[in-house]
């Protein structure tokens, strides 16, 4: 049976209660190569199923343009919705910029409280594959 957890140099991943949890490590800088690896590892854990994603980005230092573009399009494959967990002010504004400039292809919102983020994601859970 496939593991529900995974870790790479940028983030840790786990699937819990029908939600994919991604927590970025502190101080990470995401360029295109990193974005490709991040998406690849997420998909390897999902076993072809779409999931809502709870993405804790408060540790992210920067995401460059090519990575932002990749995450907004390729990064939305098999993702039903995204909730960012942010911490004011740096990651809050980073996510605001991303949502304004990149307009990700799936419903995406930023939250400071994980419980609110989960409440938002619950409506996007795949009923057939909890």
């Amino acid at each position: 049976m496939k593991s529900n957890h995974l870790e790479n140099g940028y983030a840790t991943y786990s699937i819990d209660d029908g939600i994919m949890h991604i927590t970025y490590k502190t101080g990470v800088y995401i360029d295109l190569n990193a974005a490709v690896k991040i998406v690849e590892d997420r998909l390897s854990l999902q076993n072809d199923r779409p999931y809502p994603v709870l993405c804790d980005i408060h540790g992210v230092k920067a995401v460059d343009k090519s990575a932002r573009d990749y995450l907004a399009i390729e990064g939305s494959v098999l993702v039903s919705a995204v909730a960012f967990i942010v911490k004011p002010p740096v990651s809050t504004w980073l996510s605001e910029f991303y949502l304004t400039a990149n307009k990700p292809a799936v419903p995406t919102r930023a939250f400071t409280e994980p419980t609110e983020a989960k409440r938002f994601l619950n409506q996007f859970k795949n009923k057939r594959h909890p």
């Binding site: 920067a62 995401v63 343009k65 932002r68 002010p89 740096v90 809050t92 504004w93 980073l94 910029f97």
Partner: peptide
Amino acid sequence: AMSVILNM
């Protein structure tokens, strides 16, 4: 935060 926005 302003530096992040300006760079992007």
